[in-house]
Amino acid sequence: MDCTRRRFIKILGICGAAALIDDDPLLADPLSPSLHPNSEFGLLNDGTRCIGCHSCENACREYNNLPAFETRPDGEILYPTELNDRVFTRIESKTIPSVDSSTGETVTYRRHQCNHCLHPSCVSACPVGALVKSPEGPVYYRAERCIGCRYCMNACPFTIPKYEWNSNKPFIRKCTMCSEKVLQGEPTSCASVCPTGAITFGTRNELLEEARQRIAQDPDRYHNHIYGEFEVGGTNVLYLSSSAVPCADFGFPMNVGNESYPSLTWAALSRVPGIALYVVVWVTFVYFITQHRIPEELKNRESEKTDSDLKE
């Protein structure tokens, strides 16, 4: 009996101690409200200001030491059409008929990157704390812990974490919001090169304020929605889209809801110690009840049998 109880306490102890073992100050509890709401940095991607120059893609590639983009024989660069382990951000364009029909058609843009959720699904999914939500905002990756289970990829509602499928020592790759820079208060590489101010770096509160102002000043130009303000419990990267192509038309997932993702599993996981205790108590109880139910003769016969077995 004692053995079970000890084992059980040990498991509980491991779960309980886990919170203490991880004393890394950068590992924020994925469920806690944001630790520093005023010093938490983010990006505001304004689709109406973007001109599709791909400067951010190039800056990102250089900062993260990613391979050069493919080029056609005539020298034209083929910009990526999907995020993968070598592409952490990209610009998607959409051609629509012009509003005043005189100029024919106009092109609008949307940026793809990690949204750096306030309560990241990937951070809560990782069994070894390889993905971290820092109090400053970035969701970054500690490669030395990763076991390669790819649960973060499965868990992300935006399908952001990507894998090095063709490596025999593969890691997860994604935008880290240039965490080394941001932790020192510097803007990200993409924000610092954007020539039109389509990417603004700042604290999340400042950016929300800025976004609201832009919408208020030019309500015809903007779709009246700041993507990321409430989605999945809020994200550090915010998006403004044009009224012509609102975010839903540009493929932003609109059904993710405003509930934070970690709470979905926590609803089940928080009950685990209770269920474990309940099962052990109940099973032990049943065991003692049924022991008394053995007919005496059978009990004697069994004990005789084992005794004689052992004497042999």
Binding site: A18, D22, C126, P127, R145, W266
Partner: peptide, 12 residues
Amino acid sequence: HPLIYPQVHSAM
């Protein structure tokens, strides 16, 4: 690694 770096919010 799950033994030495446990992250208790993970179902994994």
